[in-house]
Design a protein around this nucleic acid. Structure first.
Lengths: 126, 126
DNA sequence: ATATTTTCGCAACTTTGTTGCATTAACAGT
DNA sequence: ACTGTTAATGCAACAAAGTTGCGAAAATAT
């Protein structure tokens, strides 16, 4: 059912994702909000927001969960199949507005993709 | 430095990867070998084998670490940039011997890729 | 205003992965 | 084959990410 009530926590997290365009790890978000709300609450709000298609999740380079605001995606339609880029030096993640062609694999029905590109971001290169 | 000594544990794990062609999660391997060796040892042997390019690691769909035997990859040359497929029903992972074209991203130097395709494997797609 | 029901906070727990240290086992040199 | 050196192991304790159950608090419906 996703978000049903507009609580203080929901408002705070929504504002966060709307202001900061970038992706965030759950760990970072919990730390950021540690004086305002409990980590369990953060996990649960993120769940609901993702379920509603407002944000989307993916795994960063060390298996940590990350979230970012969705674009072109609703509760019924999760079109958000874009790759992500993570800097191996500063850990920053960016959503990449490009499409990656996935070859068809015999005998396999591919439902979704999880593409993470690793390298140096603009600030960290050289 | 990778593997220096051929211990009982190394032999066991090497045999495992040579017989079973498929990928394995560390969790599964630890459980499988729990009577034979300590989980710390499993983690450390996997580290060394990966460092030597004998196996390679990647993250499964829930961020868990997986390993599989490497093909065409040595201690100096890690060419193993293939995508993986994981079944969302039975969790099985396969290495895909295909190449995925990654578009170049402006101002980003991409060093490696981490591509996980999710769907139903042959056995699970009824 | 009050009843209903979702959401929250807290504490306790689970799971994955790591670290330090004493003991054990490879193996190189004789 | 014996012995010294050093890598590798086991163990226990820890750390971090994420989950669960439950009573209390706060949204929202009536």
């Amino acid at each position: 059912m996703g978000i049903v009530r507009k609580t203080k926590g929901v408002t705070t997290i929504l504002k966060f994702f709307n202001q900061k365009g970038e992706a965030t790890s759950v760990v970072h978000l919990i730390d950021l909000l540690k004086d305002k709300m409990n980590k369990t609450t953060v996990y649960r709000i993120l769940d609901r927001l993702e379920h509603d298609g407002i944000i989307h999740s993916f795994n960063g380079k060390d298996g940590l969960k990350w979230y970012a605001k969705s674009i072109g995606c609703s509760a019924d339609q999760h079109l958000d199949e874009h790759p992500h880029f993570q800097c191996t030096k500063c850990d920053k993640v960016e959503c990449l507005p490009v499409e990656v062609k996935i070859p068809t694999i015999k005998n396999h029905k591919i439902d979704s993709t999880n593409i993470l590109l690793l390298g140096k971001c603009e600030a960290c290169s050289d």
